[in-house]
Structures are given as C-alpha cells and as structure tokens.
Design a protein around this nucleic acid. Sequence first.
DNA 1: GAGTGGTCTAGACCACTCG
DNA 2: GAGTGGTCTAGACCACTCG
Lengths: 236, 236
Amino acid sequence: MRRMASKYPVIKAELKSMLLTGSLREGEAIPSESALAKQYGVSRMTARRAVDELEREGYIFRIQGAGSFPTGKRFRQGVFRVRGLEEIALKASSVPFTRVLKSGIALPPLEVTDALGLEAGTAVLELHRLRSVGDQPILLEERYFRLEQTERLLHMALHQESIHALLVGLGISISRVEQTLEAVNLDATRARLLETTVGAACFLMARVSFTDDVVLGYSRYWVRGGSGAFVSAFEP
Amino acid sequence: MRRMASKYPVIKAELKSMLLTGSLREGEAIPSESALAKQYGVSRMTARRAVDELEREGYIFRIQGAGSFPTGKRFRQGVFRVRGLEEIALKASSVPFTRVLKSGIALPPLEVTDALGLEAGTAVLELHRLRSVGDQPILLEERYFRLEQTERLLHMALHQESIHALLVGLGISISRVEQTLEAVNLDATRARLLETTVGAACFLMARVSFTDDVVLGYSRYWVRGGSGAFVSAFEP
DNA sequence: GAGTGGTCTAGACCACTCG
DNA sequence: GAGTGGTCTAGACCACTCG
C-alpha cells in the first residue's frame, strides 16, 4: 500500500515556485500561516510545516509578529557538510589514526591570542595533532584553549577521536561554534607533515568555540585539498 | 516581559547530553517520542520537535516503525554555507558584476562529458562567466548543459545573477544537486582571469544538477581562496 | 487592536518494524 | 499485535510588529 499523499509538500512546492519565479514584490511577505491554512483547507500546523522547511532551506526568514519574507538569492547555493575522519576512512575502506604532535602550555602566535580575546603574551593550552586515514595524512589540527577549565585536558587521552567528548567529560559544554573556510597554499613545515609539496592547495578551517558566549578555544585545521572532506547534496 | 521558557529545548538538551556522553549502547535507540512525552509531561508533538531538531543537526536518524538512533560522530562538524555573490558584495559594501566570457555550443573536455553521462564527442551548451565584487574577480564559472531543453538559454540574458532563474523560466526545474568542494592550485589561464598568481590556492566547487533524476548540467566554480565565500556558525 | 509567528495540547489515523 | 515514527486536526495562549 502506498503512503497517502501528504499535504505539506504541496504547499511547500507552490510557495517555492512563487519564490523562484519572483512573483512577490520586493520586501513583500509570503502569505501568513493562517492564510495558507485557510487557502489549502488544512490546519495551521500543517501549513506551518511547509513554511518551516522553506525557512530551514534558506528560502525565507521569519519575523515574529511581522511575517515571513523571501531571503533573495542567499543560501540558495546550499551547504557543504564537513565529513568526519571516520566517514572518510569508511569510504576508503581504511582506518583512521591520530598522532599527537605537541601538547602543553605555550605562548601562541599573535593571531591566536587575538582570536581568543587574550592579551599578547598570555599562555594557553596548545594541542597539535596529525590525523591520517590508512597511511595518508589528511588533517593537521592546531588547537588552542584558554587555560582556565581546560588545563586538565593534558592528563587525558588526547589521541582519541573527539576532543569535544573530553571537554564534555570535564563538565565543559560548547554552546556555539563559528568557523570560516579558506583555500591556502601550504608552507614548508605543514606540507612536510601532510606529506605533500610546498605550496600545495589546502583547506584551512578556522574555528572559534564558545561556552556560555565566552570564547573557549580557537582551532585551525589544515585539510588536504583532494581529500573528499567536503560533500553536499541538496534539493533546491 | 520575557518569553515563557519553552519545553522542547530542555528535552533536546538532555537528549543531546545523552548522545554526547555516550550513555547509549551501540545501536540502541533513544527513547521513543511517546516515552519522552510521558517522561516530560508534554504532548507527543512537543517531544517530537526536540527529536526533529536533533535529526536535522545530524545527531540521530530515524527509521519509521523502529526508532531513532544515534548517528555516531558523523555530521558533528557542522556545515559550511556557500555565500552568494550578492551577500559577499553586501559585506564588502560593494556591487556584484558578471561578465560572460564565452557562450555557445561546443565540444567540452572529456571529464565534462563523463560527468554529464554523454559519449565523448557530444556537443553541449557551454557557458563561462567571471563574477566580481567591486573591481575584484571572485568567482570563475564554467557551466555545461545537455543540449536538449537548454539551447534556448543562449538567447537569454546570461549576464544576470541567476542562471537557475532562467532555467525555471524555460520550464526546467532542478530537482537535485550534488556537489563536491576541493582546494586546488590555479593554472595560468584561470589565475590570469581571477587576477592572481599561478599556483595560488583556490576553491573548486563541482556541481552536478538533475531534473527528474536525469543529469541536466555540470558546473565548475573556481572561487578565490580568501574570499570569505564559505561561512558557518552552529550550535553543537 | 488586528494580525503575525512561537509554542503547545490531546487527541487521531496511518505505514512500518519487530519478534 | 505491540510499538514506532509520519502526518494531521482544531483548537489555545503568548510575544511581537505595525499602523
């Protein structure tokens, strides 16, 4: 027996077509949830679900009390998901391996103290790791944490997959993450670690993590350019 | 007046902590929606909303009739959203500009016919554009489409922001997109177009688009490495 | 004050999985 | 057959925006 046709995808599809053909005037809201419910003869929760998905896919944004508005062309290009090392290993039918290169308390480069919101010359917890799949180094991690709370990390199993899990174990929970992605040319030191040539193109992911809106850590990840670390599929 | 505390975030947070501390056995489902509803004294729809968000964030996946299961460590690293050119321009307080470099019917490189699922030697619609913000070239587009349906594109305004909108205008709707992202070193020709040096690190986004599960087009986008085209913020 | 989105309730019927 | 997730209803109260 086939599943009964759902109602919300119909509403969603018609709204999407309205958004894509540009039949709305600039700054004009889409019909309200109540209006959609009435128009399609459904409950408001069902109409709302269609609007929910459009918001999640970036077609509209909502303002409570005012309405739901088209986002313009933003977001339409979709997102790239970052593959974890385990997933890359799975695809390659190989095993992930993590080597700790450096761990301790250190004076970090200036851009790191900046990112952490510290004064120049403040010591931080430093953790560098090299992560491989099979014999192929994939990812170079350079992590820095503010010392309060995190110092106990140094006595933990730093070669394990998830530093995040160690933090949770210390009672630290990360409330938010901000990250950027760039393409950069590798310098000699990092090229050697990743077993490639100087100047090879590489992803650089820089991440600031927060606990309770206070900066906790700053991490940079160098990921080999052709590693398949970023993938995406979406329905526009 | 502050908003009343919502209930679903509490449920979501407790489930997330259960997932992160690994207190579930391998392959064990999280509590069912009905069980959560009973446990927290809420309606099933409210419990479901907490579970919805965890699914959306990649912590769990659901199987109808069976339960909701932890995904392991996949997805946890979040996603990068691709910024549209308009958004980059907005941030830079500048204006976007698109120049059509080449458009017509051509025999494409071998890897393109491969990606399109065509025999070598089949002609396709070719469209190359260079897109800038202010005076700075940001993005080089090389698009290829199977000829049926799309040939009329050649008579349309190809310098406009959205080729997708033109396709919609032709009655073609894209049902799905698959894309990958790599970091590569620029060759001489493309470096010159993007006004940078040979070998400079650059993003290469390759995208296959489908209509009704048939391949419609294949596009490659070269994006300058430090352009701020990829951004992300999420709550783990 | 009228209209909007945000959250929630207490049900319902269904398709599906599992033993 | 018992339990699970998928969808839906017809309400409710609230915070918020706008004129």
